[in-house]
Nucleic acid binder design. Structure first.
Lengths: 340, 340
DNA sequence: CGGGCCGCAGAGAGCGCTCTCACGGGGTGG
DNA sequence: CCACCCCGTGAGAGCGCTCTCTGCGGCCCG
């Protein structure tokens, strides 16, 4: 079947047809479809029957044209994401967003914000294509959002580092999560605690490091054993290698992502350091990586899917003019497994 | 800023306004915007200038209403996906799709096809909301696609097991990839080769098993050492446990996904079986998991992102009535690392 | 018993764009 | 030199819906 529909088959039923069948005017059908309260129940019923009979589905384009609303929100992913796209994080966030929106009238569109032409993204957003945007803006580099969020509802994943201070966002309590992880290492009797931190141009990287640092400082311990990675396994391995090369003793390790922990594991193994015997390890992120490691990674669990859902919820509320908390913070919990 | 735009700020410029500024009719502007060949170059230039001056962006809804095309395609993900969503596979496919579409006029929308109400999905697809659909239909269970793909261009990821035989799809050469993996194990002198196969209700699961089986049969070897998983690390671990429990010797192992390989690794380790010394392992999928394992997994690489791009490309061609190969097959390659 | 409301329905004017159709003018062939 | 094309253009009719505005009854109040 070289498939080309010859003439768009069945022409979709229109409001007009429903109105005719139900014996009312277009306006009334529209009212029923949009749940306007002031419709005679009996007529409403007739209309609903007609809708069912014709298998009527409102035409989104027409509706959006007339109402000047699109009923669509877009998820903006930085194209740089390509590099980290294999991070299960994104998939989970998307899942949460899509899951929430599925129950609303909103449609989810996605754009990869091309770094080469941020203007294209801006024009798309401001061109009346969507009612709002969700931004998974990882790095602090792009500030194109400041301008957009002034005239379009925008919700960020994670505290934006730049842009206007009034942004709406949903974030995970990275700092307290990291603190809890570090506390656990302390409670295990570890005193020479290192960390493999994330990039310092994103909140997740900054805050997790801060939590670790603050906790060690509170315990009067040295917090100089820091190396940085970019959340990928390879960078975790490299950071671990640098950490060991310093020569300072390490008996506890907090890693800012499960993927980096995977990298660290392999280096520890190649140095014949046993987990948790020689080095107790606590990670951050409770994804497949965390569970798949041997020993399974004790880690800070945070609700990624939930974050997506909350972002979507917040955005819809914003679009519909309902009151919204500007910031939503999601707690973390410690998942104890074998590594610490 | 409790952000509520008071009255939709700046009313977007319309075709009409561009026409007035350029001193031509609406029709002519429309022609320019749509690259109609028959426009006087000089006027076209005037129009383009006017567009730039006004920063005009066509209103998608109006265009779609008038043209009966939506310029949107949707990606349908089975909701069951939630369970496997952390699989980097999806993220990569999406990346490929979004990347390709970014260069076209098409917009990407996503829906999680709720298993509880496939009807909702169908109505959305057939309700004129999109010009075409991309289906990442993993399992063979849902056959709702057969009906849809009759009246809407649809491209599948992977050979669909059910539905009309004429479907368009892009697939990876799973069978030959698996065969190559198995051949490698043979070339390493292994003769007691087991496999952890994927679910037998999806092509990726079936074909990879077939490739393994065919190769062993070709070499006159026993191909009864098979256990199944569902592509997750946990299922890989369970399958490995069952395989070892059989008591039959195993010196080579082909695992149908990198994630399952991760699970298998941990079980092999707990049985003090060394990789590749005691058991040489070859996986399938070249994702973060494969590289993060210790020893790094020798695996069959397949172009997941490329598959997404090809799917999108195929769909757009289909929508625009251009000739399209019904099936696209993407080759695999063997990535040699430390595990075999 | 009359006037004023209020609740519900219908008429109709667009929303911004596409696309068919008709038209004018220049080029070609007879 | 005229008939015929054909190319480039503009006019205008919608696409399917929303939403304001008007109108029609019936009810309450004075």
């Amino acid at each position: 079947m070289t498939h080309r529909d010859p003439g768009r088959a069945r022409p979709a039923p229109t409001l007009e047809m429903v109105a005719a069948l139900a014996g009312v005017s277009r306006a009334t059908v529209s009212r029923v479809v949009n749940n306007s309260p002031s419709v005679d129940p009996q007529r409403a019923r007739a209309v609903r029957d007609a809708i069912a009979a014709l298998n009527y589905v409102p035409n989104r384009a027409a509706r959006s044209l007339a109402s000047r609303r699109t009923q669509a929100v877009t998820l903006v992913l930085p194209e740089s994401t390509s590099k980290v796209f294999t991070d299960p994080y994104f998939a989970s966030v998307i899942e949460g967003i899509a899951g929430y929106l599925a129950e609303t009238e909103y449609t989810l569109t996605m754009i990869l914000s091309s770094e080469s032409s941020p203007e294209k993204t801006r024009r798309y957003l401001l061109g009346g294509n969507v009612d709002g945007a969700l931004v998974v803006s990882h790095h602090s580099g792009d500030n194109s959002w400041a301008r957009v969020s002034g005239s379009l509802p925008v919700v960020f994943a994670g505290r934006p580092l730049v842009g206007e201070a009034g942004s709406h966002y949903v974030e995970v309590e990275n700092e307290s999560g990291a603190a809890a992880a570090t506390d656990l290492l302390l409670s295990r009797g570890r005193r020479n605690i290192a960390t493999i931190a994330g990039p310092q141009d994103m909140p997740a990287g900054i805050d997790r490091l801060t939590g670790w640092r603050r906790t060690l400082a509170g315990a009067g311990l040295d917090s100089s054993r820091v190396e940085f990675g970019d959340f990928t396994p390879a960078s975790g391995a490299a950071a671990m290698r640098r950490l060991l090369a310093r020569g300072a003793p390490i008996d506890g390790l907090f890693v800012a992502s499960a993927q980096m922990a995977a990298g660290a594991y392999s280096i520890l193994a190649s140095h014949s350091l046993r987990i948790p015997g020689d080095v107790a390890v606590v990670g951050f992120d409770d994804d497949e990586f965390a569970a798949a490691l041997t020993p399974a990674l004790t880690t800070v669990h945070h609700p990624v899917t939930g974050m997506g859902a909350r972002m979507a919820e917040k955005l819809v509320a914003l679009i519909e003019g309902r009151p919204v908390e500007r910031v939503t913070r999601l707690g973390t919990s410690l998942v104890l497994r074998g590594s610490a």
